[in-house]
Design a protein around this nucleic acid. Structure first.
Lengths: 200, 200
DNA sequence: CAGTTTAAGTCAACGAACCTGCCGTAACCG
DNA sequence: CGGTTACGGCAGGTTCGTTGACTTAAACTG
């Protein structure tokens, strides 16, 4: 998701469904389902649909916060940083880098802005004083919460409509899509919550 | 989805879970669940998790195709265009714009490259000759399929692990997250397939 | 303690992909 | 014929990602 925050060109039709887009391409080729009977959801058209779902859901989910971001002159990169600092108070820079999968310089730019505008605070680690542990200031927490609220609207609506069982399925599939490391990260920080800082 | 295609900095640890990232922030504030008993999945920490899920799943799903893209000197913008042209052969430029939600110029750049390299063909509409209906050439279909296969691996693994019921739930939630227009688009092009060109 | 490794910051330069605003051409349409 | 639409293109700008090299300070290690 890049910085696509345009003022919604008011699609006259439903959404680019002109009467001219021909038939759906090659839905006949469905490799894996030929072996498994109960695995109809692995047919090609089902998987193609999943591609669309991921694109649209992510596009609109991230887009939900854009209004606030742009009025503050921030971008999505800032939002991502805020989010993961909020989720992991006291996270180190290198850990945040590993999560975001961007380079040090990209993060530095974002972090400089966030610190400069008083949203993020850096405190040296007491166990390892080279580290600059990142936390949100009160202003940062407020901002992050505003952004979160926007996304929450979409999410709660979706969750409520779909119901608890669907939500459970959603989570299972999403976990499956992401890679091993991300799954491990979520497990570590998820159910039991990360250990409150000790060990040093 | 921005252009983040970095060569995977080989995270030593699982993924940035140093023992120092303190406790999970403010999971006490859970607004909506206070009213509804059965809607436990609307608690704040559940919704926060959903944010993470969307980030990681999307990151890794789109990242799956990056290897191929970068060896061809293409970016994710090209992939997105290829995907939606493949899904909607004969789509108009303006319809594609409405789907991707980018500006004409951004699409033009991508499209110029794809046409120039022989992946996309433009044919004037016979009903409205101003239109340049977009289709994939054979090379374009081949490339799009290569990219698709990469994503398919992740997807089939996830779907298979999660099972059919979970997949159904996944779809329901994802549809709920996206906006009205996107839902309508998927409905129009989904189950029955788009009407093969008539009505004009 | 010297030497290496690590955490973080920094500079320079670059590239991809997005943006607005404006203009032009061809075609459709009332 | 005049207004609108579909598409293309130019100018100029921003965000956000990239690489590579270098510095500082702290931690680790033989």
């Amino acid at each position: 998701m890049s910085g696509q925050r345009n003022p919604q060109p008011a699609p006259r039709e439903t959404m680019g469904r002109s009467p001219f887009n021909g038939h759906r391409g090659g839905a006949d080729v469905n490799g894996p389902s030929s072996t498994a009977g109960s695995l109809l959801f692995l047919r090609e058209d089902e998987l193609r649909l999943a591609q669309d779902l991921l694109f649209f859901a992510y596009r609109d989910f991230t887009g939900a916060a854009d209004v606030i971001l742009r009025e503050l002159g921030l971008g999505r990169a800032h939002h991502r940083a805020l989010h993961f600092i909020a989720r992991n108070p006291g996270i180190t820079v290198s850990d945040l880098l590993a999560i975001l999968r961007i380079t040090k310089q990209s993060l530095a730019r974002v972090l400089t802005a966030l610190v400069g505008q008083g949203y993020v605070a850096q405190v040296p680690g007491r166990a390892d004083r080279r580290q600059r542990l990142l936390t949100l200031t009160v202003a940062g927490q407020t901002l992050e919460r505003r952004l979160y609220e926007r996304q929450r609207e979409r999410l709660t609506a979706a969750y409520r409509e779909a119901g608890g069982a669907a939500v459970e399925g959603f989570r299972r599939v999403m976990r499956g899509i992401m890679n091993e490391n991300a799954r491990a990260y979520l497990e570590a920080s998820g159910p039991a919550g990360p250990q409150p800082a000790q060990r040093g």
